[in-house]
Design a protein around this nucleic acid. Sequence first.
DNA 1: CCAACTGTTAACGCCGTGTGAAACAAGCCC
DNA 2: GGGCTTGTTTCACACGGCGTTAACAGTTGG
Lengths: 235, 235
Amino acid sequence: MADEESFLVFPDPAPPDLARCLDLGGYSWKSWAGDAALDRAAEGGETWTGAIVAADTDADAAWMLCRELRRGDVPTEPLLVLVSGSQLDDLESRSELFDDFIITPFHPRELEARIRHLLWRAGRGSRPELVAYGPIELNLETYQAVVDGRPLDLTYMEYELLRFLTSNPGRVFTRETLLNRVWGYEYYGGARTVDVHVRRLRAKLGEEHSNLIQTVRSVGYKLGQSRWKEPSAES
Amino acid sequence: MADEESFLVFPDPAPPDLARCLDLGGYSWKSWAGDAALDRAAEGGETWTGAIVAADTDADAAWMLCRELRRGDVPTEPLLVLVSGSQLDDLESRSELFDDFIITPFHPRELEARIRHLLWRAGRGSRPELVAYGPIELNLETYQAVVDGRPLDLTYMEYELLRFLTSNPGRVFTRETLLNRVWGYEYYGGARTVDVHVRRLRAKLGEEHSNLIQTVRSVGYKLGQSRWKEPSAES
DNA sequence: CCAACTGTTAACGCCGTGTGAAACAAGCCC
DNA sequence: GGGCTTGTTTCACACGGCGTTAACAGTTGG
């Protein structure tokens, strides 16, 4: 569930054969109407495995969408365009807008092969370095933390603490250990510091996920491993 | 430019339609029998603009040639394979052996389009001349920066800094990293230099866009990817 | 020699951070 | 089970680090 492969498909009522081919291939995908939806997606931090843009019907809108996708607001992704045979000459002046193309009507297996190859090529590229556990995802490059897709506004120490716990899920750490490994200095009288930071983290994780960080009495804290144990938070 | 574009074509008697298509496209090419000739070429320092390998007749020899070409003796070059429809499934396990493929029988204009795109990717593909993020656009050729269509008057260092940040949107960079990658020297003690340049950049970006460059406390700076849910202080 | 660019220094103000103590919950002993 | 002990959560506050900002000095080019 972490890296569900989801494709952005244009136009909104996706071409029937394209839709059927994607479904048969086991890919999840979502069709979008236009660039207006892009802004929303960019804000929400939504990302796609790639984009498939059919340019054989509404060429202008399709190329505009490609241009938007290539702007960098959304991370550069494999971009496949569908063109009709008569549009082949249009490709030359738009080289930067796509990674691969396929001519309609296309053979389903060719589409599948092209998608596979694009994904393979993308996989070899620089993949964002991230650590995740359950609903928590930490992007080490952007210093962003999200839970359930909702971005968290964490301070430096909160982020470091959450990163350490998420990197070692299920393991219990004493306060001394946490002070040593996260704060980096020898424990000298400030055990409550950890408590307070755990508290702040729990608060920012939200009511529903505050139990992700569990306290092991007389020992310390740990993250996860028993999420499905008697929630009973409601009522 | 205008250097002789010469393609390596396999097999030796090149497929007639392929040969004719290349000739019509104005490309120079040379057909080779097999891998024995490769060593000679590698020694002689001969290079090609790219390779076009027909795998629909002698598949085994074709893939072996691709493997040789990808061995690293010769710099990786655009590699296009011709396959028949029944060979599509073979591609999956050979992803690393080609850059693009085309199904035989092919339409001449599709071949031309694919060659053009491969050449474009090989040349300018890795070196974009335009980098953009949100309202920011940097023209690397004219050394001009515009935001919202309004041209900015940036100094050299400001431009370099903005270019680096815009090229890696969302990623956080420490001041030390910025000094190394943008300024290019190792420096320790003058970290405030970065602060000041960021400040000047923000000033020139204008009030409305000054928040494009975000400071991540205790870490460094990053551009964009903000999740500012700004609680409607404006309006 | 002026103008613009660049890097440094220092003062200011904010916000993250740690600490102490009080409120709270969970065991433990009698 | 009542009361005591131990450990955890919560709150409020003060210190200090960190970023911002402005002014200044060194440097280069016209």
